[in-house]
Amino acid sequence: MINFALDVGTTATPESYLFYFLAPLSVLAALGMLLVKKAVHSALLLAWVMISLAIFYIAQEALFLGIVQIVVYTGAVMMLFLFILMLVGVDTSDSLEENIPGLRPIAIVAAIGFGGLLVSLISRATFNRPIYGLSEANAEGNAFGIAAELFTRYVFAFEVVSALLITAAIGAMVLGHSQKSKSKNSQRDLSIARFRKDSLKDASGLPSAGVYALHNAVDVPALLPTGQAAPSSISSVLQARGDIIESATFEMKKDEEEEK
């Protein structure tokens, strides 16, 4: 005999409107989070799911949790996610192609099977008493009720969790602290590296800028004995910035050569 005991406690009409409006949206947002390519979009969709959940919490007489959900999750955690996304690179979008054969179908079948069984289990759960509701527990306000629970019965767990938080903060600092695994190259190292190269072309160092040139400036390439300009004589920083005069303009022209 299946007794749909949960049906006993039906909710007020406004709440059911709220649910039927927000629940499909949050499911859609969750699915979207799964399917979109860009991680930033996923993060935004997740934020939406979390805000919906916060609303559900408030609707279920969990005002304190709802606020905390918004402050901690959508405020702090999601911002942290976005921050890390910025750090790691927004455009490291990941291709949705699967490279482990057979993983995706198995995963989807298994997860849907899991969810289906879970839903089925919930649907046949029996609960031979009415839903009490929280009006009594929240008589002096939800935050007050939670505080009473936290600081009496769960005070030890609360302290442990605070220790966990501190540990996590320190752990994150330790992990985030980057130490150079290798000391900076000294002149000696650079010299050795030059001689270890395939050719000994640069063994005596790169040509200095401006040597044999018409102009003597850091942005002017040196001229090789052949009369050609040497772009390698100019700092790569200047090259990257584009603050360089085209090397070719300094090359000795053929006719000039003939004149001589």
Binding site: I100, L103, I106, A107, A110, G113, F114, L117, S120, L121
Partner: peptide
């Protein structure tokens, strides 16, 4: 195979087996 996701998949399959048993 060294891929974290395959281990996660195994966990999901395990959870499925567990809940199927309960069911």
């Amino acid at each position: 195979n060294g891929y974290v996701r395959s281990y996660a998949l195994l966990m999901v399959v395990g959870a499925l087996a567990l809940i199927a048993t309960i069911w």
